[in-house]
Design a protein around this nucleic acid. Structure first.
Length: 290
DNA sequence: AATGAGCGC
């Protein structure tokens, strides 16, 4: 039966809404009465209402509250209580729980919490004056370059995200700036004079080692995927495709590995693996269509 | 059966 909610007594509960089609005559009724619970846990609730014909009716609800201490236990359960403790429970105090708390660090790629805003950049004109307050300048999230291109158009969008101090200026400009400036803005080695953007220096984003997992059961979530693939090596991202409207899993997902070999091993081991009553398909993912 | 979101001008 209904549980008494002591909090928020002023708020109407869902079930109490719209009971009387506008005419609120409830104040004419006798107040609710609660009797008990008695020693047997029997509680009576007597309340009065108007029915559809406008007649006063009395409603009596009888519930039995099951008190934990008095709860009926099966004979087997009672018997189990007298068993000597074994395993990890040997060292546990009576009544304390046995839940193991994992201290494993789980890193999921969530760059920014949804809804949080990217730091706004004041518009600065050629004269150096600060522009209209609140105006936001086009700033590429990948390379940080202002006023040049959107992130989606960034020439470096496939590359590793910028590290601290990433400056996308021609090497000459960057060095002269560093040399002339008394504040000495940091110029990363790759940006210093003579430094070449070599392919080896710039790791590609680990999008590359993307593994597609299909035939996932509906209730497989990202943490489950991580748990499943983590043993093969560092995972940079897990993703489960979800129907935006229903938020029900679409039954497939992606796992990105930092190392290609780990991805390959995962594919070999986990493809055809029975997981949650389904047989997983695990294979290399085709690059994103965009 | 199935190939991902965000993210603005």
């Amino acid at each position: 039966m209904a549980v008494e909610t002591a909090n928020q007594p002023s708020k109407l509960r869902w079930g109490e809404l719209d009971e009387d089609d506008g005419e609120d005559l409830d104040f004419l009724l006798p107040p609710k009465q609660v009797i008990g619970p008695d020693d047997n846990g029997i509680k009576k609730l007597i309340e009065y209402k108007f029915n559809d014909e406008g007649n006063k009716i009395k409603i009596t609800t009888t519930t039995r509250i099951r008190k934990l201490a008095n709860a009926r236990l099966s004979k087997r359960a009672v018997e189990r209580r007298s068993w000597p403790k074994f395993g990890d429970a040997v060292h546990e105090d009576v009544g304390s729980h046995l839940t193991m708390v994992s201290t494993e660090e789980i890193i999921l790629e969530r760059p920014r919490a949804p809804g949080t805003k990217q730091e706004e950049v004041k518009v600065v004109g050629d004269s150096g004056q600060i522009g209209k307050p609140g105006a936001v300048l086009m700033v590429c999230r990948t390379c940080g370059k202002k006023g040049d291109h959107w992130t989606s158009k960034c020439p470096y969008k496939d590359l590793a995200p910028p590290s601290e101090g990433f400056v996308d200026k021609p090497a000459s400009e960057a060095t002269t700036a560093a040399a002339n400036s008394t504040k000495g803005a940091y110029v990363p080695p790759s940006m210093r004079a003579g430094a070449e953007r070599s392919g080896t220096e710039m790791r590609r984003r680990n999008e590359e080692n993307s593994v597609r997992v299909t035939n996932l059961s509906e209730d497989t979530r990202e943490p489950d995927l991580l748990e499943l693939f983590r043993p093969f090596g560092p995972v940079s991202r897990v993703y489960v495709a979800v129907d935006q409207k229903t938020s029900i899993s679409r039954g497939f997902g992606f796992v990105n590995f930092v190392n290609r070999e780990d991805a390959e091993r995962a594919i070999n081991k986990l493809n055809g693996y029975g997981y949650d009553n389904l047989i997983l398909r695990v294979e290399w993912a085709a690059p994103r269509s965009n």
